[in-house]
Amino acid sequence: MSTDILEIRNLSASYGAVQALHGVGLRVPQGAVVSLIGANGAGKTTALKVVSGLKRPDSGEVLFKGLRVDARPAHELVRMGLVHCPEGRGVFPNLTVMENLRLGAYTRRDKAQAAMDLDWVWSLFPRLFERRRQGAGTLSGGEQQMLAMGRSLMARPALLLMDEPSLGLAPQVVDSIFEAVLKINRQGCSILLVEQNAQRALEISSLAWVLETGRVLLHGPAAEISRNPRVREAYLGEGA
């Protein structure tokens, strides 16, 4: 009996002739924050896209809550509670903040519960409330990231996939984003976090996987990974 909300087995995926993932395995225990780190082009985003149904794998399995989901389209997975918060400015700039959040709740019929979740999003990101009637394209980078996260929460995720939430943001903004990630996790939401800011990601994770050119290089408890000399050299900015 497994207590993993997500399990990936032997996953391979490619873009045309270029193979991006070579037999990658990974698991996210129920209620955990797990980080997936690696250099640019290591296959992190591809792995997330396969999990969320945006991309079909060549082979391998994705199990969500113990069910095979690798042949399901993305919109069905959202309904099941697997929500992908896309990289960087993945908001709809042509829509208002409020409309973006309503889209996050697109699959939901429980209006009362959704209204409570909206209140929670406002309390998590008060700045979004101030700007709720503004076009999302007029928000700053940090606010857009908050909106993308708030929008994902409106779908009531059981598992949240986060792609590079701190990308291109100022250090104070990064602090508040990571703080929000922890708050979301404390509400019982499991999180798979893809980050280039490996240090910050490892600080808040229990487990970590390191990808290199589409293969798992290392994996284990986050504290162990952050002590690993190869990781320190390659991803934590310590010169040899």
Partner: peptide, 20 residues
């Protein structure tokens, strides 16, 4: 609303649970 979401990005729209 779903139509307007698609007019920006089909991929992001499908991440909202919209059957594009």
């Amino acid at each position: 609303l779903a139509m307007r979401a698609l007019s920006h990005s089909h991929e992001t729209a499908s991440l909202m649970g919209i059957p594009t």
